[in-house]
Simulated scan of single mutants.
Amino acid sequence: MKTRVVAADSAAEKESAIAEAVHLLRSGELVALPTETVYGLAADALNVSAVLKIFEAKHRPRFDPLIVHVGSIEMAERIAEIPGASSELIRALMGRFWPGPLTFVLPRREVIPDVVAAGLATVAVRVSAHPVFSAVAAEFGGALAAPSANRFGRISPTRAGDVSEELDGRIPLIVDARDTSHGLESTIVRVERGKIEILRKGPVTAEHLADFGSVSIANHILRVSAPGQLPTHYAPRTRLVVVNSADEFAIPPATKCGLLAWRSSSKSDGFSEVRTLSADGDLKEAAAHLFRYLRELDRANLDLIVAEAVSDEGIGAAIMDRLRRAASVPGAQL
Rank of each mutant, 00 (worst) to 15 (best):
Tyr234Asp: 05
Ala235Pro: 08
Pro236Met: 06
Arg237Leu: 12
Thr238Tyr: 09
Thr238Asn: 12
Thr238Phe: 12
Arg239Val: 08
Val241Gln: 06
Val241Ser: 08
Val241Ile: 15
Val241His: 08
Val241Leu: 10
Val242Phe: 09
Val242Lys: 04
Val243Trp: 06
Val243Thr: 10
Val243Ile: 10
Asn244His: 14
Asn244Leu: 04
Ala246Arg: 00
Asp247Glu: 15
Glu248Leu: 15
Phe249Arg: 11
Phe249Gln: 09
Ala250Phe: 13
Ile251Pro: 02
Ile251Asp: 06
Ile251Met: 10
Pro252Val: 04
Pro253His: 05
Ala254Asp: 12
Thr255Ser: 09
Thr255Pro: 13
Lys256Asp: 02
Gly258Asn: 12
Gly258Pro: 09
Gly258Cys: 12
Gly258Thr: 13
Leu259Phe: 03
Leu260Cys: 08
Leu260Asn: 05
Leu260Pro: 01
Leu260Tyr: 02
Ala261Asn: 00
Trp262Phe: 15
Trp262Val: 08
Trp262Pro: 00
Trp262Arg: 15
Ser264Val: 11
Ser265Trp: 08
Ser265Ala: 15
Ser266Gly: 07
Lys267Thr: 10
Lys267Leu: 14
Ser268Asn: 10
Asp269Met: 05
Gly270Cys: 05
Gly270Met: 04
Phe271Tyr: 14
Phe271Glu: 03
Phe271Trp: 10
Ser272Gly: 09
Ser272Lys: 12
Ser272Glu: 11
Glu273Thr: 01
Glu273Arg: 08
Glu273Ala: 06
Val274Cys: 05
Arg275Val: 00
Arg275Gln: 02
Leu277Val: 01
Ala279Asp: 14
Ala279Pro: 06
Asp280Arg: 13
Asp280Gly: 00
Gly281Pro: 06
Asp282Glu: 10
Asp282Gln: 06
Asp282Thr: 04
Leu283His: 09
Leu283Ala: 13
Lys284Asn: 14
Lys284Met: 09
Ala286Met: 02
Ala287Phe: 01
Ala287Gly: 03
Ala287Leu: 01
Ala287Asn: 07
Ala288Gln: 12
Ala288Glu: 09
Ala288Cys: 14
His289Leu: 12
His289Arg: 15
Leu290Asn: 06
Leu290Ile: 05
Leu290Gln: 07
Leu290Tyr: 01
Phe291Ser: 06
Phe291Tyr: 13
Phe291Leu: 10
Arg292Val: 13
Tyr293Ala: 02
Tyr293Ser: 00
